[in-house]
């Protein structure tokens, strides 16, 4: 019998129906969710500091920048591409922001920084659609070039930014009740991105383009326009991560955001979004992000050496992807 294995069925939590049964089903089918729950339960026993409001919000705040890049990456990967330039675009955005802040003020700086991200992302998309450069190569070029440009503009130094206190509050150090402002902001972006992906025509077209670009073109979808738009979105989100960096640290840092793109990719694949494109979920990317974040956190709380932490993360990524592919294969065999 044919069984539906689109994401809404693999993860019925997002479909309608009994929430409890849905959550149970989701746990059984998705290794990332199961892993996250196991991680939380084990960690709670291992450290008394783990399940505290302060600690959880700390972890959430630490991973806001990678989280924003991972949202962009989810769209890019669903569309059948990849983007390696997130960390470098973040760094370039902070440097440009620090240079622009004294001239245009903090509000103007936000616009300038977002524009930098949009331009970088659009160039990626243009290279891929018009230049016919494979996404891996185009964004590898952008990664190197953006980092280089950040170093040129800052002359290799860390730039102290002259920022309005309101900006620092909103993007860096402020709190709304117990919630740090960056977490609130990133949370809003996560929810918006999830809704757009699942419930709007744009999100649907991103999936169709990743699933079957030729078919999408024949169906009248502007395939190349959709591709340029997802890379632009990724650039904008990486620049937004740059704003959080500026707000938190108050500096433009040409070596900032190093390897954030790889953590972002790890979050997406641990969440179970396949590399081939066509399907994916923002909520599962969040789950993947938390698997990484909480693993780091519990290893820190237990004072494990940072070298061992990197080793552990590498193992987790591979094991998680291995399991999710197994599951996929099993559900295919059952058919």
């Amino acid at each position: 019998m044919s069984d539906g294995r689109n994401l809404s069925e693999r993860t019925p939590m997002f479909a309608k129906g009994n929430l409890v049964a849905g959550a149970k089903d989701l746990m059984l089918r998705n290794i990332a969710v199961t892993g996250l729950l196991a991680l939380i339960i084990i960690s709670t026993f291992l450290s008394p500091y783990f399940l505290t409001v302060d600690n959880i919000f700390n972890v959430l705040r630490q991973w806001t920048m990678v989280g924003l890049i991972a949202i962009g990456l989810t769209y890019v990967i669903i569309s059948g591409g990849i983007d390696l330039s997130g960390g470098a675009v973040l760094a370039l955005a902070t440097v440009v922001g620090a240079l622009a802040a004294p001239i245009v003020g903090s509000a103007g700086m936000i616009a300038v920084v977002i524009l930098v991200g949009a331009v970088c992302g659009y160039i990626n998309g243009a290279l891929i659609t018009w230049g016919k450069v494979p996404p891996f190569v185009a964004t590898l070029g952008m990664m190197t070039a953006a980092r280089g440009l950040a170093l040129i503009l800052s002359e290799g130094r860390t730039l102290t930014a002259d920022l309005a206190p309101e900006f620092v509050f909103a993007f860096g150090r402020g709190y709304l009740g117990p919630i740090p402002m960056p977490v609130l902001l990133t949370g809003i972006v996560f929810i918006t991105a999830a809704v757009v992906l699942k419930y709007t025509v744009y999100g649907r077209h991103v999936c169709l383009v990743g699933d079957n670009p030729v078919g999408a073109h024949r169906s009248g979808i502007q395939v190349e326009g959709v591709i340029r738009s997802v890379y632009t979105l990724h650039g904008v989100l990486a620049a937004m991560a740059g704003l959080l960096f500026l707000g938190r640290l108050g500096v433009g840092e040409p070596t900032g955001g190093m390897l954030f793109e790889l953590s972002g990719i790890a979050a997406v694949v641990i969440g179970g979004t396949p590399f081939v494109g066509g399907v994916g979920s923002i909520l599962l990317t969040f789950v993947g992000l938390m698997v990484i974040g909480l693993t780091y956190n519990i290893l820190n709380l237990l004072s494990v050496s940072p070298y061992a932490q990197d080793f552990a993360r590498g193992v987790i990524i591979v094991v998680a992807v291995m399991f999710s592919i197994r599951r996929e294969a099993k559900s295919r065999a059952r058919r």
Partner: peptide
Amino acid sequence: VYQDLALFDDSNVAENIFAGRE
């Protein structure tokens, strides 16, 4: 209706029928 590449494998039946004209 082309011999190949007519459908979107990862999309459901309704999404396929309405692809590009949702």
